[in-house]
């Protein structure tokens, strides 16, 4: 039981970290970035590179975020910008971009599964359970990501501009806000978060060129359910992530893999706005 509580908390934390970047892009730009999984993979390979380079594994996080940001901003400029009026095509184009990124990674690193060094080793005794310390640290890590995003959105001028663009882009433009710049930065930020999440989760498993796809599906479902709010994303990750853990342990891990997608589909059918307030 205690182990399950910890599993739920850490799973929700991982899902939150993974989905936050997708939510940021969807919230501001109303675009679903299907390259999200590829950016996650990219972050995983950034972690692999730091392992190979023999530098501190902690550096994997800033490296992944910076690489994600730069590539994301470029992608926004050249691929996403022509597609704002065609949101379904934007899904497809970013999926195609994901294929490209995946194949480039495969060409450079090969198809095989590889392992990265974890910045934290060992276990800790929590709730009478010996539990992976790194996994536990993901909880404050995800909270940190959420708080930093909230601070960025609610405490800076860029965040204010982004919120204005979300709420009413036409009005924001009329007040002199350059919504193109806001979008570039947002897409860069969302991609950076995806890559960071990739670097965060790889020490728990491994890296391979297809690692992002299942995460993409789950993140997509969570964002559809959460709408545009960081708070409802937290609720969604705890509820759906918790259900996933419970189904995995009491039914079967295979069915657990389905839980988020199926529950999200059911929730959205009953309540199209999901966990968002209206």
């Amino acid at each position: 039981m205690q182990a399950q509580i910890l599993d739920i908390a850490t799973s929700a934390a991982m899902l939150y970290a993974v989905a936050a970047g997708l939510l940021v892009i969807f919230g501001v730009m109303k675009i679903i970035n299907f390259a999200h999984g590829a950016f996650l993979t990219l972050g995983g390979y950034c972690a692999l590179l730091t392992t190979w380079a023999g530098i501190s594994p902690w550096l994997a996080f800033p490296v992944a975020a910076i690489v994600g940001f730069i590539i994301g901003a470029l992608v926004e400029r050249f691929i996403v910008r022509p597609l704002y009026q065609r949101p379904l095509d934007a899904i497809l184009a970013t999926w195609g971009l994901g294929i490209i990124l995946g194949q480039v990674i495969t060409l450079i690193f090969g198809r095989e599964v590889q392992f990265v060094q974890s910045p934290v080793q060992g276990t800790a005794l929590v709730l009478d359970t010996d539990y992976s310390l790194y996994r536990l640290l993901l909880v404050p890590g995800a909270i940190l990501v959420g708080v930093a995003l909230a601070a960025l959105l609610h405490g800076t001028r860029l965040g204010l501009a982004a919120r204005a663009v979300i709420m009413n882009e036409a009005l924001a433009r009329g007040l002199g806000i350059d919504s193109d710049r806001v979008r570039s930065l947002t897409f860069g930020l969302g991609s950076a978060l995806a890559a960071l999440a990739g670097a965060l989760i790889t020490p728990l498993s491994s890296v391979d060129p297809a690692m992002g796809v299942p995460w993409l599906v789950n993140a997509f479902m969570l964002v559809m359910v959460a709408g545009r709010s960081l708070i409802s994303l937290m609720v969604a990750t705890v509820v759906l992530g918790g259900a996933q853990v419970l189904v995995s342990s009491y039914a079967s891990p295979v069915l657990g893999g389905l839980t988020i997608a199926v529950l999200a589909a059911i929730i959205l059918r009953i309540r199209p706005q999901g966990f968002a307030r209206d």
Binding site: I79, P82, L83, D89, L92, A93, G96, L97, I99, I100, G102, Q103, V104, L107
Partner: peptide
């Protein structure tokens, strides 16, 4: 696969 991906993105855009 890479070429297909590139062609796909170009066609969509």
């Amino acid at each position: 696969q890479l070429l297909l991906g590139v062609a796909f993105v170009l066609v969509i855009v």
